[in-house]
Structures are given as C-alpha cells and as structure tokens.
Amino acid sequence: MLVWVVLISVVVMLVAAVAVLFLKDFLAVTAAASVVSLALSVLFVALQAPDVALAEAAVGAGVSSVIFALTLRRVGLWKLETKKDK
C-alpha cells in the first residue's frame, strides 16, 4: 500500500518536473511547479513528516506559485485580458 502511494506520487512529481522544464507557456509552467510541490507534500506525509508536508503545501504550493505568477505579470509573460481588448 505505502509503496504504491510513494510510487504514484514520485511519478506524478517527476512528470510535472519535466513539464516545468519543457512547457512553452509560463503560466502552465507555474501550475506544473505547484503540482510538483503538492506531490512532494503527499510524499512527505507517506514518509512520516507531517510538519514538513504542511510547510511544503502552504509555502511551496501556495506562496511560491503566487510569487511566480506576480513576477510573470510584471515581466510581460502573462497579459491580463481586460474588457477593452475584447
């Protein structure tokens, strides 16, 4: 049972990590990085580290993705669609 949980979360994590490196759209890359953090926090729970899992889920998947998204907005890689443009 534990082996399957660990195996599935490692596979999800590695697929998302490859997606981080090779996707073209940077917003999708940010989402994939968030998936890496979430799979990692599942893995931490399976490895009996609930403190670290909470930190990874709150900080790695939450705050870190917001920081990346804000940066993409500031460097012009993510344009907001306003009513005027439509």
Binding site: L21, F26, V29, A33, L40, V52, E56, T71
Partner: peptide, 17 residues
C-alpha cells in the same frame, strides 16, 4: 532567467526530499 529560477526551485525540492 525565469526557467533558471524554476530549475533552482526543483533542485531545492529534490534536496529536501
């Protein structure tokens, strides 16, 4: 540069694991 920082993030996650 942003890809490089994503790489840094993955490296950090790997070391933590």
């Amino acid at each position: 540069l942003i890809r490089i920082i994503f790489g840094l993030m993955l490296l950090e996650a790997g070391v933590n694991l």
